[in-house]
């Protein structure tokens, strides 16, 4: 066990962990305010990646309803990224209006929202497949400009390598996290949001437009989802409309591990799982998929509210 080996795994773990974390932030925001898990988040994440792809490359593939079509314009990648994220935010709002608000209005069983959001996810994913086909899409390799694909340096004579996209993912996640923390703790809107999360009735009595804040939360959640979907798409390509699903499930483990509804918890959970997977001994690579869930199971048994979760009575 050399220093280089340790550093390499640390880098791998941090970068993957930050990916898990930004994905999980979208879940956590919605959970903190509604106490419900939005199963459609993974689909919004996927949608964001496809939208940015479409806006920046402009070309549909050979399958799907729109096969061979071309957008009359394309945007430079940074603009497309923002536009794609904004559209994902709108998609997030649509999810709220379709799957959550009608149920709230009818005071339905909270569990039903799991199914209705799953229904919206099914619609979104299959709509993407219907329009784009199931094939693999990929951003051009120069999407990040002329940065080298990787940095390789030596520690104690042994090479340590990190891909540039890994660094970008890590930095962007940190920025997103900081922005979110500022928004929630440093702005008036954030304060109102926290009040809404604390108690909707009280917030409403205080003159806060609860409905608008819920909608706003879904916008931010969708925006974060679309942004992280694009970043992961840039890093790994879009391997079909289901590529968000595997992340979606793991991100569930992340938010629970860190503590439901806790933003620092989502980050901590992401890093714990990312590092846990990275430091898995090479001989046990066949168990990598189980690491996140095994950690989750064990931690829940020791600390039922997650690492940073509060001890208040949980809503479902």
């Amino acid at each position: 066990m050399t220093l280089a080996w340790f550093l390499q795994n640390l880098l791998n773990g941090l970068s993957m962990g930050s990916v898990y974390a930004i994905f999980a932030l979208g879940y956590t925001l919605v959970f903190s305010i509604l106490g419900i898990i939005n199963f459609a988040h993974g689909a919004v994440f996927t949608l964001g990646a496809y939208l940015t792809y479409l806006l920046s490359v402009g070309q549909f593939g050979i399958n799907g309803l729109l096969a061979g079509w071309q957008l009359p314009f394309t945007l430079p990648f940074p603009l497309a990224l923002l536009a794609g994220a904004g559209l994902s935010g709108l998609a997030g709002m649509a999810v709220e209006r379709l799957a959550f608000k009608p149920l709230r209005a009818r005071q339905a069983d909270a569990l039903l929202a799991l199914v209705s959001s799953l229904g919206v996810a099914l619609i979104l994913v299959n709509l993407i497949q219907y329009l784009f086909g199931a094939e693999i899409y990929s951003y051009p390799s120069d999407v990040l400009g002329s940065l080298p694909p990787a940095f390789i340096f030596k520690v104690g004579g042994k090479p340590v390598a990190v891909r540039t996209v890994q660094i970008v993912l890590f930095v962007v996640s940190l920025v997103m996290l900081a922005a979110l923390a500022w928004f929630i703790h440093g702005t008036k809107a954030g304060k109102a949001l926290r009040a809404t999360a604390e108690n909707q009735d009280t917030a409403s009595l205080l003159g806060i437009n609860v409905d608008a804040f819920i909608l706003g939360t879904f916008f931010v959640s969708g925006l974060l989802g679309g942004l992280s979907g694009t970043l992961i798409g840039v890093s790994f390509g879009l391997s079909g409309p289901y590529f968000g699903v595997a992340y979606g499930l793991k991100a569930l483990a992340v938010i629970v591990l860190g503590g439901l509804g806790s933003i620092p918890g989502a980050v901590l959970g992401g890093l714990v799982i990312g590092l846990g997977e990275a430091f898995l001994p090479p001989d046990l690579s066949s168990y990598k998929e189980a690491v996140a869930y095994a950690l989750l199971f064990v931690i829940l048994l020791v600390r039922p509210q997650g690492l940073l979760g509060g001890t208040t009575e949980q809503k479902v």
Partner: peptide, 8 residues
């Protein structure tokens, strides 16, 4: 797609 709509 329709299956999802029916769920919702």
């Amino acid at each position: 797609i329709l299956n999802g709509m029916v769920l919702v």
